[in-house]
Amino acid sequence: MIGLISYLVFFLTISAILAIAVLGLNLQWGNAGIFNGGVVAFFGTGAYLMIILGGPERAGELGGFGLPWPIALAGGAAAAGLLAVVVGLATTRLRHDYLAIATFGIAVAIEAFVRNATYLSGGAKGIRGFERPLEALVDNPFLYSLLYLALTVAFLAIVYAGLSRLVSSPYGRLLRAIREDETAARSLGKNPARARLEAFVIGAVIMGFAGGLYATFYAFISPQDLAPILTFQIWAMLIVGGAGNNLGAVVGTFVVWGCWVASGNALSSLAPQELQLYAGTLQYILIGLIIVVTLLVRPRGLLPERLQVTKRPGPQNTGVVSSAGEQYQS
């Protein structure tokens, strides 16, 4: 019984951490229409930097500054944001799918970097060992896992509340306006490139924060955790839940992560021995199918975005349309 409960606590903790990252993606994609093809880069940067800043000293390697956990966590999130600035400056003004390619590229680059920069990242073996916050005070591992779950859920609630406020603020409306019609937004005197960059960076900071929580939870991070599949999983969660809807993002996380874990368990207990090697292959196909089928069949997800349509009187409406028409002509 206690085994089952501790498994559930484990599952919920990971889900809550992932949900934070999905919320970050929801700000980027769901609200601002920014395509992030390398979620794992920002997640991973946050994770690595957290553990480098806050972890114990490692022989012959840089890092291990032993900073207090909150500072290390914030440092990781900030680093993810900084990375987003570098990529974003080059791409937010360009064709939108360039950002998809550039972010996908940064994920590949970061993975290659942590695999090879042994002096900083421990290389392929990663960085192991981290004193988790308050761990010394709670000597029962089960109680500690409950405590950490509570902490993660609290963080999830804070991020959720913060993003909900942001999304319903004038800034959130601006982001959606840019997503729908960048040209019109620009003609209203807004600076779409800047707003998009801001949303991209804020989203990346949230992902980096989630990465920090993830590394804290395992007290371990390695290049394995930065595999591209994580990006696809996080997308699947957002698409299934409903891009643009924060509640949907959280629900989608639990649904997709539940499917992932359940399929993994089912394969390992039911599949014949010779197929075990291909369990991961089958699970990847599952994620691919979830993404494609959801986009085809239920493109707005389980909980679609509630669009706030502001009705305006007729003449203004035609004004907007004819300006769009002229745009089309030129």
Binding site: N317, T318, V321, S322, A324, G325, Y328
Partner: peptide
């Protein structure tokens, strides 16, 4: 028009 429901 260019968009459905918004004729020119």
């Amino acid at each position: 028009g260019y968009r459905r429901g918004l004729p020119i």
